[in-house]
Amino acid sequence: MPSPEDYKGQPPAWCPGCGNFSILKTFKEAMAELNIMPHEFVIVSGIGQASKFPHYLKCNTFNGLHGRTLPVATGIRLADHAMPVIAVAGDGDCYGEGGNHLIHAIRRNIDVTLFVHDNQVYGLTKGQPSPTSMEGMKTKNQPLGVLSGQLDPMALAVALDCSFVARGFAGDTAHLKDLIKEAVSHRGFSLVDILQPCVTFNKINTYQWYKERVYHLEPAYNPRDRVEAFRRSLEWGERIPLGIIYRNDRPVMEDRIPVLAERPLVRRSFEPPAVEAALKEFY
């Protein structure tokens, strides 16, 4: 079994105290416990502080464009569905710039695990509001305070019948580790929204703010009850639930494509006889 040290990457360039550090450490532990070696999986990320994540690890990496994490992850997964594909994005990255892709990745139910480092702010571009910023939050860009309503990724995902919907907290690593392991192991599209304090630009949603509000979903909670899941997903403000809010066993996209039944696309070799047959059709 690998040890967390085996996933050591470049030294992180995040701000001291950033919630990303504990996510990184927890992720390494989870992958080691899942016994998935660095070369056996791939991380696709976008652009933002969160999306620098794979550089601070050792693993196959496609660090693409802002917002475009999920299409790349989908392409990789369709080409090689033997490889676990993990997508890492920021809240701006995934819920703003790439919002359309999230909707359709959920619909496809491609077996990709998405971790959104949700600091409720644009970190890398220095403090503009994100889709999950709370209404009224004042920034240099929004002197009137945020006028738009706050996006609720959990409710959105449940509404779309997303196969696995969970929320974690960077300040609760023991719980987060289990979530990561569950999410990576789940067959189908998984969304894990991780509350991640931004110590530099978000002075509202601090460690303290989250700690006062988060609670673990009780053991008797049934994540397969979609209506109850929707009700819980709406909880925000005084109490914020952590854990697996919703899950189902919807058919996975890769399983429904006959071409992928035998082996991954990448394992197919070039087949000249197929060309001859294709030519004959034109006579």
Partner: peptide
């Protein structure tokens, strides 16, 4: 999405 998917597949 189309172009990014193709790039993902190509990378893989």
């Amino acid at each position: 999405s189309a172009v990014n998917m193709a790039l993902g597949a190509s990378f893989a």
